[in-house]
Nucleic acid binder design. Structure first.
Lengths: 208, 208
DNA sequence: CCTCATACTTTTGGATGAATTTTTTTGGGT
DNA sequence: ACCCAAAAAAATTCATCCAAAAGTATGAGG
């Protein structure tokens, strides 16, 4: 039997994950040029797997033209629109189908997100959204959302760091709508919530 | 100045496009195993660019596990759901914002799709949807839709070949809703239309 | 006749060198 | 000082090579 162990040593996978981490951790900052040989040496593999990893990351949207992707304001707006479409669909589904167990989990997570360190709040908020998203029951959508979110990842932190107003309150409202099985309302609240997120993200990121 | 010519000789690009065409044209049928060396010889490049092309196609969803991707019934259902979400959004936008010129273009295309060869109808129908989709005004969504549609491509033809009932009539209704600026109705009609498409696609493809 | 072990073949993964392309530097001319 | 062209350096692309892994056939033992 073959156990699919994702951490199996494999130069391509190693390269892919390493470069990805370097970008997401902020070590490789947006706009910087990626040189195959440099990376190959750093990661300790040859150029071949690096190239394959770069092609993959390019497709994933984290690299563009051999440079670390640096989204423009427009990019964020466009991605946000698709995220919103999917998440508000998920919120509706959640209101219609969420089990009692999941609902109480959601409430628990909401509580956790009320206070704690930045990392704890970021993590709880992510869980909140992920739990709702899971109600899509659609792996294709989930994969797509995950990809879209990798680009957003660095910007999401900004919201917590800058204490974006009403973040908790909006989550609370969404939870209430889902708990009371009001699909239309949940969907609409989620849409507004994500639109606010975007608005504040653009405001907090001084780059634009 | 640099003119980006997509047909620039470039082994990787050549490999990518060649393999993609082989799959979409049906020459490489779903499930078949892709052997790097075989392809390399056929296309006339070495294995390295083939490998990169395969990674790309894998990401694009046309290849999985070194085999030409063969969607299951579930895969089609899941993809269709996301396509539906985006296209009904587009239909709403179209109803709200479409210019007079675009509207008359849409009408023209509708007329063209009424009769002609299979290829002509397939092409006109694609144009109909594309014109509506363009009203998203969102490159991220458009790119995503395009990717989702590559997988659907082979199945779409089935609808025309088997003369799926009411196809023209539904397009007509959608056009009417858009022309009369009724966003909700356009969106809803599009959703139902695509659900019918899926239903017939599953029925016509004997594989499932 | 089936089963499993072993040898053989095919295919993949990764490294590397050579050719080509792109980018940067340098230096002459205005 | 600025612009452009030529030269130099750097990086990318691709082919080829070898080792490891996967897959397949063969045949001995039950």
């Amino acid at each position: 039997m073959q156990v699919v162990n994702p951490s199996t040593t494999n130069a391509y996978r190693l390269a892919y994950e390493s470069i990805r981490n370097l970008i997401l951790s902020g070590e490789l900052i947006g706009g910087i040029k990626l040189v195959e040989e440099r990376l190959a040496e750093k990661i300790g593999v040859s150029r071949t797997p690096i190239r394959e990893a770069i092609r993959h990351l390019e497709q994933e949207g984290l690299i563009k033209n051999k440079r670390v992707y640096k989204p423009t304001k427009e990019d964020l707006i466009y991605s946000s629109e698709l995220i919103t479409l999917i998440e508000s669909h998920a919120a509706k589904k959640a209101a219609e189908n969420m089990t009692k167990e999941k609902l109480s989990q959601l409430k628990q997570i909401l509580k956790e997100s009320k206070n704690g360190s930045i990392d704890e709040i970021v993590s709880a908020n992510k869980k909140f959204h992920d739990l709702i998203l899971a109600e899509c029951n659609n792996p294709v959508m989930l994969e797509e959302i995950q990809k879209l979110n990798t680009v957003f990842y660095l910007y999401r932190r900004l919201l917590i760091k800058n204490k974006r107003p009403l973040l908790y309150e909006e989550h609370e409202e969404i939870y209430q709508a889902i708990a009371s099985k009001n699909g239309e309302s949940a969907s609409e609240l989620m849409r507004k919530h994500l639109e606010m997120d975007l608005k504040y993200m653009l405001r907090y990121s001084s780059i634009f």
